[in-house]
C-alpha cells in the first residue's frame, strides 16, 4: 500500500483517512441546544432561524423548517433536532445517489481557489490505496505554476502526470492523457482543470470541450464529473453547482476546507434541488485529509 507523503506536514496535523478522523471546530448547531434549555421552541423561533442562517442553509429551506415547527407545535430541543435531522437526511440522501463505485475518469472542476489541485492529489491517494494505478492530467494551463503544483504532488506520490505547456489548449492535454490512460493500463485518470467562474460562458464551453474529449474514449457512466466547493462559500455555492451542472452535467460534489468553522450548509440545497450527491469532503492540507462523504454521519455530526 502506497500512501502519498504529505509535502509539508505540519506537526500534529497528520489526519488519517478513517472516518470520524476530524472534529469540527465548533458543533454545527450547538447553539440550538442552549436555546431550548430556556423554554419551548415556538418562543425561540427567531433563535432557531438565526442558527440555521448562520449555517449557510438556504432561506427557503429555513422558512419551511420554521413553518413545520409552528405547525407541529414542536416544543423541545429533541423535537427540533429530529425534524432537522429528517429534513437534512432526506435532502442529502438523494434516490439518485447510487453506492460509490470507482469510476475510470474523474474530471475536477470548480471556481478559482476552491481546492481542485489539492483534491486531485488527495483523490489519487484513495485510489492508490486501493491498489489502483493513477494518471494525472494537468489541464489547468492558465494559472501560473498550476502545472508545477500538481507535478509536486505527483512526484511526492509517484503518480504519472500528463501535462502541456503554460497557456496551451487544455483539451489537447486531456486528449493526450486519455490516450495514455487507455494504452498504459491505468485504472484511474484524474483531470485537474483550471478554476473558472461559472458566469464566464466561454470558459464553461471550454469545460464542455474537455468532457467531449474524454467521452470519445470512455462511456459516460465511467466518468465522474465532480464540482469542488469551498465549505466557506455562502449562497453562491448553489449558483455554482447549478451553472456547472448545466454546462458539464455533474455527477457529484466535493466539499473542501471542511476543517473551517464554516458549517457547509449550502450543500443541503445543492443535494436537494439538483439531486447531486456529495461524494467526498476534505479537511486539511495533508494528502490524507479526505473522507468519503456519508450523509448520515454528516447529519449526526451537525448535532454532536
Amino acid at each position: 500500500m502506497r500512501r502519498p507523503t504529505p509535502l509539508n506536514s505540519r506537526p500534529g496535523k497528520n489526519l488519517k483517512m478513517e472516518k470520524n478522523s476530524f472534529v469540527k471546530p465548533r458543533g454545527f448547531l450547538e447553539k440550538l441546544k442552549n436555546i431550548f434549555s430556556s423554554g419551548p421552541a415556538r418562543e425561540h423561533i427567531e433563535d432557531v432561524e438565526e442558527a440555521l442562517i448562520e449555517a449557510d442553509i438556504d432561506l427557503e429551506i429555513i422558512s419551511g423548517i420554521l413553518e413545520a415547527i409552528k405547525r407541529d407545535k414542536i416544543s423541545d430541543y429533541e423535537g427540533v433536532k429530529k425534524l432537522l435531522k429528517d429534513i437534512f437526511s432526506d435532502s442529502l440522501n438523494q434516490p439518485s445517489v447510487a453506492p460509490q463505485a470507482l469510476k475510470k475518469v474523474i474530471i475536477l472542476c470548480g471556481i478559482n481557489g476552491a481546492g481542485k489541485t489539492t483534491t486531485a492529489a488527495k483523490l489519487s491517494g484513495i485510489y492508490a490505496k486501493n491498489g489502483g494505478k493513477v494518471i494525472f492530467a494537468a489541464a489547468d494551463t492558465f494559472r501560473a505554476a498550476a502545472i508545477e503544483q500538481l507535478e509536486a504532488w505527483a512526484k511526492a506520490s509517484g503518480t504519472r502526470i500528463i501535462k502541456g505547456i503554460d497557456g496551451g489548449d487544455p483539451a489537447a492535454v486531456v486528449f493526450d492523457a486519455v490516450k495514455n490512460a487507455k494504452n498504459g493500463g491505468c485504472d484511474m485518470l484524474i483531470i485537474d482543470t483550471a478554476g473558472r467562474l461559472h458566469t464566464k460562458s466561454n470558459l464553461m464551453l471550454e469545460l464542455g470541450k474537455i468532457k467531449k474529449v474524454v467521452l470519445k474514449d470512455y462511456p459516460e457512466d465511467e466518468i465522474d464529473t465532480l464540482l469542488v466547493i469551498d465549505a466557506n462559500t455562502g449562497k453562491n455555492a448553489f449558483s455554482q453547482a447549478k451553472e456547472f451542472n448545466e454546462s458539464i452535467k455533474l455527477t457529484g460534489v466535493i466539499l473542501t476546507k471542511f476543517d473551517s468553522s464554516a458549517k457547509g450548509g449550502s450543500i443541503i440545497r445543492i443535494a436537494h434541488e439538483l439531486r447531486l450527491p456529495i461524494k467526498y469532503m476534505t479537511y486539511g492540507e495533508d494528502a490524507g485529509a479526505i473522507s468519503v462523504f456519508d450523509p448520515q454521519e454528516f447529519v449526526d455530526k451537525l448535532f454532536d
Binding site: 448562520e54 449557510d56 469551498d230 466557506n232 462559500t233 455562502g234 473551517s260 468553522s261 464554516a262
Partner: peptide, 11 residues
Amino acid sequence: DAMLGQESVNV
C-alpha cells in the same frame, strides 16, 4: 473571497 458565506464574520 466575495463568495464567502456567514463565516465571513469569523474570518
